[in-house]
Amino acid sequence: MTHFVSCIPGDAPNETAAAAWLARAEAGWTPDHETAFQGWLASAPEHREAYERVCASMDFLDAHQDDPELAALRRRTAERTRPWRRGLVAGALAASLAVVIGAVAYQAAPAKLETFETGPAMRRITLDDGSQVTLDARTQLEVRLGRKSRELELVRGQASFDVAHDRARPFAVRLGRQVVVATGTAFNLDQGPDASVVTLVEGAVEVRSAADDKLLARLSPGDQYAARNGQAQVARADPSAALAWRTGKLIFDDASLSEAAERVGRYASRPIRVAPELRDLRVSGAFDAGDQPAFVRAVEAYLPVQATTAPDGAVELRPRPAS
Rank of each mutant, 00 (worst) to 15 (best):
M1C: 03
F4T: 07
I8N: 06
G10Y: 09
G10P: 06
A12G: 07
N14D: 12
A18W: 01
E26H: 10
G28D: 06
G28V: 10
Q38P: 02
H47P: 07
Y51C: 03
S57T: 06
H64E: 03
D66Y: 05
A71K: 13
L73H: 00
R74Q: 14
G87F: 03
L93M: 15
A98M: 04
G102K: 07
A103M: 04
A109M: 08
P110H: 02
E114F: 10
G119T: 15
D128S: 13
V133M: 03
Q140H: 06
R147A: 00
E151N: 05
E153V: 08
D162S: 14
L175S: 11
R177W: 03
V180E: 01
V180D: 00
V181A: 06
G184I: 07
A204V: 04
V207A: 13
D213W: 10
L215G: 03
D223E: 09
D223G: 11
N229C: 02
N229F: 01
Q231S: 13
Q231W: 06
V234A: 15
A235S: 08
T247S: 15
L250D: 00
D253W: 06
L257G: 08
A261G: 09
S269L: 06
I272Q: 09
E277N: 10
R282M: 11
D291L: 08
Q292G: 08
P293I: 10
A301I: 09
Y302T: 14
A307H: 03
